[in-house]
Design a protein around this nucleic acid. Structure first.
Lengths: 338, 338
DNA sequence: GTGAAAGCGCTAACAC
DNA sequence: GTGTTAGCGCTTTCAC
């Protein structure tokens, strides 16, 4: 016999399929004679019965899957988040369907569409660049979702974000305590909320600590990449700026700085200190090891999944949002200015 | 109206649901009047109809999902493979369900079980450590699968593996051409087929090139990790061995060597050259940048997905297996011995 | 407490 | 060519 069906179990236990269903389902088990329930369960086990979630899903309009929308799994930022998510989803009986958008709004639309047609029960969205119309539409159609790493403007969607502002403040304070006063910021693209938040936090930290406030010291990178970071730093230096330290929008941008240092014979941390953001893997293997702001990625993922499961269970509960604290990992790329 | 159903479309187009189904389905579209088909399609579009794969799946016993069994998504080896897989799956209308086994046989069993109950149509298995009984059982039950990065002994399962032996030969030849004669190998665990294959390839390459053949120069690491690599190298050095170069079982193990070099004031590549295996991200940022054997991960994933889709389409075709060529990426961790 | 019957949305025989 | 009918495996009224 092929993988046994509920009816097989019912027959073997001498009950009706409906009764077997009730017995097997913890939620409805109470409706059934304890004896019968026990018997059915035993039979099911001995037959190696496994419920077919597809059939169940068809009936209950629940698929037991949720969609994970991320830009690019290959970006080391995301695997730990995904693991954190799975860690919570799995014991809850849910599975995660991952899509990579490459931050392409068109792909994003299509992929979310395809996830919805697969009847996912909710979405965890970790892309920085969801277009607003799409977001609003999803909210309107009451698609359960939670945003990771970004807070949705205006829309009532739960989100789980690292406390970027606090992280940047940590970085700036660290540099200031080392004696730096002229600190540059290579900001992420202002098209991303993260880029905006971090840049704003940078400006206010510099201001609060009474360091040199010079608009020319904040440069926007066109992307969150090594190349864009290198380009931005080159622009800064070519414009004659000589910061003694730079706070990079993220680790990749910081890596771009390393490239420029190599090109131009600048020594880090002797000539310039650098702080990254994210604490990607293997940063401790760099030369010099990169000082950076660490984000509890796995925890973020886990928290996001919990938020989503809650939202699915109680669709009408108002959106909670969580801000996770960050920490600074001091390594070799920061030192007092000379 | 909630998301429209096939019946809604059929009604709006003035045809029967079955006809609508035929019209919408490329495979059966030929059975329907071209005009009608066109009309139905138009109506479907205007209604924003999206087929419900769950319902379809219930009927056709196909879920449109396949299971990806990997040890740990957090290991940088896997994200590119997963992306390669998705790249092929997505246009084919399939989705991938990922599980992380942490190389725990128990978890592996349970997770594969849960994938099967989710009615996946096939499995892509990238764990090094599938227990044989499980594998055999799956094969017996005619679960379609393909193995990635390992060849199943004895069982007729398609596999897609990097040509490890050729890669190791590349590494050894490179070192030999630099003038090294006393080369060590920090092998991966012999409980993994990869570990065994690479160690064997190392021995035969050393032999073929008439280099120093000394069994003491091959050490097994207890795991594929940085720590295990460091430990193995310490053991080797403590035993008085002084190789001028080491071929590490993988990049992580090579990283462990870096740690030991730092501990003991050994200079790389001046005192010892090191070659890694895998070409993880950011290896070019290390000090020194690691010379390593590059594996076309994404391509492996894509190929694996193709193999699986083929197998699903033609279950009776004999298992094909693919061996992908590797290349050596020469960076700064290798130099002539001094 | 349990069975009967209906139906989730779709597709596949089988008629016509 | 198209409609009819049945049913995938399960859950859920509604009777009894």
């Amino acid at each position: 016999m092929q993988t046994p069906t509920l009816r097989d179990v019912a027959e073997a236990a001498g009950v009706h399929a409906a009764t077997a269903s009730r017995a097997l389902n913890p939620g409805t088990r109470g409706l059934v004679n304890a004896e019968t329930a026990k018997r059915v369960i035993k039979v099911a086990e001995s037959l190696g019965y496994r419920p077919n979630p597809i059939a169940r899903g068809l009936k209950t309009a629940k698929s037991g899957t949720i969609g994970l929308v991320i830009p690019d799994l290959t970006n080391p930022l995301f695997p730990p988040i995904v693991r954190g998510i799975e860690e919570v989803l799995e014991p809850a009986g849910y599975g995660g369907l991952i899509v990579n958008t490459d931050n392409d709004p068109g792909r994003e639309r299509t992929l979310i569409e395809s996830l919805r047609s697969r009847q996912v029960e909710g979405l965890i969205v970790a892309t920085a660049l969801v277009e607003h119309p799409l977001l609003e539409q999803l909210a309107r159609e009451r698609v359960q979702m939670v945003m990771v790493n970004r807070r949705p403007g205006g829309i009532d969607v739960p989100s789980i974000t690292p406390d970027d502002a606090a992280g940047i403040a940590l970085a700036v304070e660290h540099l200031a305590s080392l004696g730096h006063r002229r600190i540059a910021h290579l900001a992420g693209p202002t098209s991303t909320s993260t880029g905006v938040t971090r840049a704003r936090a940078f400006r206010s930290a510099v201001h609060d600590l009474s360091l040199d406030v010079d608009p020319a010291l904040v440069v926007e990178c066109s992307q969150w990449t090594e190349d864009a970071g290198a380009e931005a730093l080159r622009g800064l230096l070519d414009a004659g700026q000589r910061p003694t330290a730079v706070v990079a929008g993220n680790d990749l941008i910081a890596l771009g700085c390393y490239d420029v240092f190599a090109e131009r014979g600048i020594s880090c941390p002797d000539d310039v200190s650098v702080v990254g953001f994210n604490d990607m893997p293997f940063l401790d293997k760099l030369r010099p090891p990169l000082t950076t702001v660490a984000i509890p990625h796995q925890q973020i993922g886990a928290e996001a999944a919990r938020l989503l499961l809650d939202a699915i269970a109680e669709p009408d509960r108002p959106a909670r949002s969580v801000l996770l604290p960050l920490s600074l990992v001091v390594r070799g790329s920061t030192a007092p200015p000379r």
